[in-house]
Amino acid sequence: MSLASREALASARERLDALADNTAVDAAKLAEELAAVTALLDREVSLRRVLTDPAQSGEAKAELARRLLAGQVGEECVELVGGMVRSRWSRSRDLVDAIEELASGADLIAAERAGDLDDVEDEVFRFGRIVASNPELRAALADKVADRRAKAELVRELLGGRANPVTERLVLRLVTAPRGRSLDGGLNALSKLAADRRNRMVAEVTSAVPLSDQQKQRLGEALATLYGRRVHLNLDVDPEIIGGIQVRIGDEVINGTIADRLAEASRRMAG
């Protein structure tokens, strides 16, 4: 996103957070409504262009959004979308991407209120690992020509009754309406969004053997000191790294594995 769209998205996030402070707002219902608006604007290219047209006043665009959505979704959703179309967007598609993010954010607010945000965050990560390790499953879920209902049923078979309902809803929307994203990329984005909800960074930690509770606590404290904010640990075990740990935060990798040291020693000897 360009600067204008990033600023508009930041404002929309603040408005969503303000709504989240009102416990009378049904966050799960708001998520469903925002997802419906996302689907509408994704289909109606001309409509989203009108709603992001810089030649039109913000009030005129907000009034158009209200006329279209009133009676179809709740007042909170109407006001949220109205505020977004008042902002300036560099591309019409950025508006749709932002509404979709807010739909996921509203679902995460519902999980947070229920005390389930950590569970949802972990389940999204674990589901991503399962998909990454199963090429046939990934192909089935990412198939662009497959029937959406069939893919939705597959997700329900995998997660229904085994995962938090919020996790299931997030994954269902991603699988049935990827909107050009890869499955892996979409799951990573959801994981980051959940972490941001708690103002934390996500560290993917791979070790040769499971870490003890004390090791996890020490690692979390060390990373928090290093990055100046809380860090959530997504833990994975891979015996092939032999020993030590590998920590990935975004594009940065902190590698302390024995396998990596052996590889470095081999490179030096070869040189």
Results as ranks from 00 to 15, higher is better:
159 L>R: 02
125 F>V: 10
168 E>N: 08
164 N>M: 03
162 R>L: 13
163 A>M: 05
166 V>K: 00
138 R>P: 05
182 S>C: 04
163 A>D: 04
168 E>L: 09
135 P>G: 09
189 A>C: 10
148 R>I: 07
178 P>I: 00
188 N>Q: 15
170 L>W: 02
177 A>K: 01
174 L>N: 03
154 L>S: 06
139 A>Y: 07
189 A>K: 10
150 A>G: 11
124 V>Q: 00
155 V>W: 00
151 K>F: 06
135 P>V: 11
173 R>L: 10
156 R>A: 10
139 A>P: 04
131 V>W: 01
172 L>E: 00
189 A>L: 13
172 L>P: 05
163 A>T: 09
153 E>I: 09
133 S>F: 12
157 E>H: 15
135 P>Y: 04
152 A>W: 05
129 R>Y: 09
127 F>D: 03
126 R>H: 13
145 V>M: 13
181 R>D: 08
144 K>L: 14
156 R>K: 13
182 S>D: 12
166 V>G: 00
128 G>S: 04
188 N>R: 15
188 N>V: 05
134 N>P: 06
130 I>A: 13
174 L>M: 07
169 R>M: 09
122 D>N: 11
140 A>T: 05
150 A>K: 14
168 E>M: 09
152 A>K: 15
178 P>L: 01
189 A>E: 15
146 A>W: 01
185 G>F: 03
155 V>E: 02
148 R>F: 05
133 S>T: 15
152 A>I: 06
141 L>G: 02
167 T>A: 04
157 E>N: 14
148 R>D: 15
157 E>K: 15
140 A>I: 07
135 P>T: 11
159 L>N: 05
151 K>V: 04
131 V>S: 00
175 V>C: 02
187 L>G: 03
181 R>L: 09
188 N>T: 10
169 R>Y: 08
170 L>S: 02
181 R>P: 06
124 V>T: 08
136 E>V: 13
165 P>K: 01
179 R>W: 09
158 L>F: 03
142 A>G: 08
177 A>W: 06
169 R>T: 11
184 D>P: 07
152 A>C: 09
188 N>E: 12
151 K>W: 03
163 A>P: 00
146 A>D: 03
127 F>I: 03
138 R>M: 14
152 A>N: 12
147 D>N: 12
170 L>D: 00
180 G>K: 03
127 F>P: 02
155 V>F: 01
186 G>L: 05
169 R>G: 10
182 S>T: 15
127 F>H: 03
177 A>P: 05
149 R>K: 14
142 A>C: 14
182 S>N: 06
189 A>S: 10
153 E>R: 15
138 R>K: 12
161 G>V: 11
171 V>P: 01
172 L>T: 09
147 D>Q: 11
162 R>E: 12
134 N>Y: 11
147 D>G: 08
177 A>D: 12
166 V>M: 06
173 R>M: 07
177 A>E: 09
155 V>K: 02
181 R>I: 04
145 V>P: 05
